[in-house]
Amino acid sequence: MSTIGYESWAVDMADVGPIYPLQGWEFPMVVIGVLFWIGWHRIQFVREHKHLEQAKQRALDHERIEQSVERY
């Protein structure tokens, strides 16, 4: 079974060209990889922004600050 269309390897290898499977898929796979990378960064940005906003709200909660100061 050959994925590149050759039945016999008894040929001049200089004339063969690429010998790996899925030849010709480099560009589509790079595009998919870049889109995945950008999407992952976008998801992380949104999640971290939400987390930091919640932390900011907790830090600026004046009632909690007053309660913690009154304890001591």
Rank of each mutant, 00 (worst) to 15 (best):
46 V>M: 05
37 W>E: 03
40 W>S: 05
21 P>E: 07
18 P>L: 06
44 Q>E: 07
19 I>R: 03
47 R>T: 02
33 G>L: 06
32 I>R: 14
31 V>K: 13
35 L>E: 05
46 V>N: 01
50 K>F: 07
41 H>M: 12
46 V>E: 01
42 R>Q: 05
45 F>H: 08
35 L>A: 09
36 F>V: 12
49 H>A: 03
32 I>H: 10
49 H>T: 12
43 I>D: 01
30 V>I: 15
27 F>N: 04
46 V>K: 08
39 G>K: 11
40 W>Q: 04
25 W>P: 01
32 I>C: 03
26 E>A: 12
40 W>P: 00
38 I>H: 05
50 K>W: 10
25 W>C: 12
43 I>W: 09
29 M>C: 10
23 Q>P: 09
17 G>Y: 04
32 I>L: 13
29 M>I: 13
43 I>C: 03
40 W>T: 06
46 V>G: 00
48 E>D: 08
16 V>D: 01
37 W>G: 02
33 G>Q: 04
39 G>R: 12
45 F>Q: 08
47 R>M: 04
27 F>I: 12
45 F>A: 02
38 I>R: 13
44 Q>H: 03
32 I>K: 12
48 E>H: 09
23 Q>T: 15
46 V>C: 01
23 Q>F: 15
29 M>V: 11
20 Y>S: 04
33 G>T: 09
25 W>E: 15
32 I>D: 07
46 V>D: 00
25 W>G: 04
27 F>H: 07
41 H>I: 11
34 V>S: 02
38 I>M: 12
34 V>P: 04
19 I>Y: 01
47 R>K: 10
49 H>I: 00
17 G>T: 08
22 L>N: 11
20 Y>E: 07
19 I>M: 03
28 P>I: 13
20 Y>C: 02
23 Q>V: 14
32 I>Q: 09
26 E>V: 15
18 P>K: 11
39 G>I: 13
47 R>H: 02
42 R>Y: 08
29 M>T: 09
41 H>Q: 14
26 E>K: 15
25 W>K: 15
35 L>Q: 08
17 G>A: 01
35 L>N: 04
29 M>A: 04
30 V>S: 03
22 L>S: 09
21 P>N: 03
28 P>M: 10
17 G>V: 05
18 P>Q: 09
31 V>T: 11
40 W>M: 06
38 I>Q: 09
39 G>E: 10
36 F>T: 12
36 F>N: 03
29 M>P: 00
21 P>M: 02
29 M>N: 06
43 I>L: 11
24 G>Q: 10
16 V>H: 02
35 L>C: 14
44 Q>R: 14
49 H>V: 03
33 G>D: 02
23 Q>A: 14
43 I>V: 14
44 Q>A: 03
